[in-house]
Design a protein around this nucleic acid. Structure first.
Length: 203
DNA sequence: CTGATGATGTTCT
DNA sequence: GAACATCATCAGA
């Protein structure tokens, strides 16, 4: 069953944590991609100088103002896309960055998207490298900037399947990655990942 | 295995 | 004009 609005319209940190273990489904013109979310980060509000929308809403970040469940996808370093899920009720700002996924379905297609070559008994290392980073899984799924603003609650193209909640001893909480530009919020423990999962981007 | 470096262009000042 | 929620590649150990 797909997650409903109630799931996303909660506290951003809880949304980020509870997304672990859920299945992100993407239907790109009949090609089905499924993967288990294994790593997330929360970006919160005025107290978080690591968040893009910390100093107010711009063209890039305007979707953050919408209800939880919308997609915030943006370009970074000129060449990569990062995928976020908006959290909180409309008017409250927060988002969860998906940092890594474990492939479940459509692996051969993900492989072609990432490496531009045919899937033929590849080494384990190449499989891990498909989706163990925030820009990597977006490339593997074949997402584009036109997915900006889609609604995970109603879209026919993309949604998140529910699954039993993980026990808390399987979840690790740590500092976020590569936000050295932040000062006050740099050391907030807003990153979550599944313990011992090989697709997590970093220890 | 680790750490350093270049790629590349949108967004914001 | 600078910064940037990253990745692939290469050098060195």
């Amino acid at each position: 069953m797909r997650l409903t609005r109630e799931f996303y319209e909660r506290n951003t940190i809880l949304v980020a944590r509870d997304l672990l273990g859920k299945t992100l489904v993407y239907n790109d013109k009949g090609n089905i991609y499924k993967g288990r979310i294994v790593e997330t980060e929360a970006y919160i509000n005025a107290k978080d100088d690591g968040a893009h929308f910390n100093k107010g809403i711009t063209d890039r970040t305007k979707i953050i103002d919408e209800a939880g469940g919308h997609i915030y996808i943006y370009t970074i370093y000129g060449m990569y896309l990062l995928f976020n899920i908006v959290a909180e009720k409309k008017g409250i700002h927060g988002a969860a960055l998906i940092r890594a996924i474990e492939p479940i379905e459509g692996i051969d297609k993900m492989y072609e998207n990432r490496y531009k070559k045919e899937f033929n008994n590849p080494p384990r290392k190449e499989i891990i490298n498909l989706t163990n980073g925030p820009a990597k899984f977006v490339m593997a799924y074949g997402m584009t900037k036109s997915d900006y603003g889609l609604d995970l609650v109603t879209s026919e193209k993309i949604w998140v399947e529910d699954s039993p909640r993980l026990s808390l001893d399987k979840i690790v909480r740590s500092k976020r990655i590569n936000i050295d530009y932040a000062t006050m919020a740099k050391d907030y423990l807003l990153r979550f990942y599944i313990k011992d999962n090989p697709f997590v981007s970093k220890k």
